[in-house]
């Protein structure tokens, strides 16, 4: 039996600074997996490595039996992997519609075509509208991203991540900086859109973690301190000592 996703002994140092020192865990297909850990633990760095932004110093990313390490982001995206960013990373000058459209047309293979207009393709338009509806931004569909509220921008961030219809979704602190109410909506949204897909989510907010995750991995000092079902982690003494106690 081949593992769906195996993060295998990942090391990463930034010119001497050891950030990851042998991260190793597995993700089962359709599982919702949370990665938690204190600030600066290296969670985002891990995402950057999985999604191809950085190369690991050593180790491998095995996805359905294939080694993905070292592959560029655009290739990984075509394998069905898509990520969001901790700091909102959208096309500010573009409308919500065009933001989403950009991902959708990529999924439909309309990336470099010299002759076809993506905005003339009905199925692409339908798909784009569907995603916008899903993230609840129909009312602001024609406004530029920069004019949206913070919560709307975070929703757009998730929407763009979904727009290429990935099977493996990586969300980096999707609710960071949101109000209570917005967080609640975001949990609903994520729950809805990631049903039947594999999700890895980085979160500090334990409410979010416990309401979304099937499995939790704790990243501490560059290593996985513990990995298991939410109940196990909640009761793990080492985790309590290192992390949960303060939060």
């Amino acid at each position: 039996m081949i593992d769906y996703l195996h993060i295998k002994d990942i090391h990463k140092d930034f010119s001497g600074l050891q950030v990851l020192t042998g991260v190793d865990f597995k993700v089962i297909e359709k599982e919702h997996h949370a990665v938690i850990g204190p600030n600066g633990a290296g969670k985002t760095t891990l995402f950057n490595i999985i999604s191809g932004k950085f190369k690991a110093s050593s180790g491998a990313i095995m996805f359905k039996g294939q080694d993905l390490s070292g592959k560029p982001p655009h290739t990984l995206n075509r394998y069905g992997l898509s990520r969001s960013f901790q700091i909102t990373n959208v096309f500010n000058e573009l409308s919500v519609f065009e933001n989403i459209l950009t991902g959708v047309r990529s999924r439909y293979g309309l990336r470099y075509n010299f002759f076809k207009r993506p905005d003339h393709n009905l199925s692409i338009i339908e798909k784009t509208k569907a995603i916008i509806k899903e993230i609840g931004l129909e009312d602001v569909s024609d406004l530029p991203a920069s004019s949206l509220s913070y919560g709307q921008q975070r929703a757009l961030e998730i929407g763009i991540t979904l727009s290429t219809e990935p099977e493996l979704i990586l969300l980096d602190e999707p609710t960071a900086g949101m109000t209570r109410e917005e967080t609640g909506q975001a949990i609903n949204l994520i729950d809805r859109v990631t049903a039947n897909r594999t999700l890895i989510i980085i979160e500090h907010d334990m409410d979010v973690v416990f309401s979304l995750a099937d499995t939790i991995s704790v990243l501490h000092y560059g290593k996985i301190l513990a990995s298991g079902a939410p109940e196990e982690i909640r009761n793990d003494q080492r985790v309590k000592d290192a992390y949960l106690g303060e939060g």
Partner: peptide
């Protein structure tokens, strides 16, 4: 506008 995001959306920039 945003080259990084394009890469993560599957575009070989």
């Amino acid at each position: 506008e945003n080259e990084e995001r394009m890469k993560f959306l599957g575009y070989n920039t």
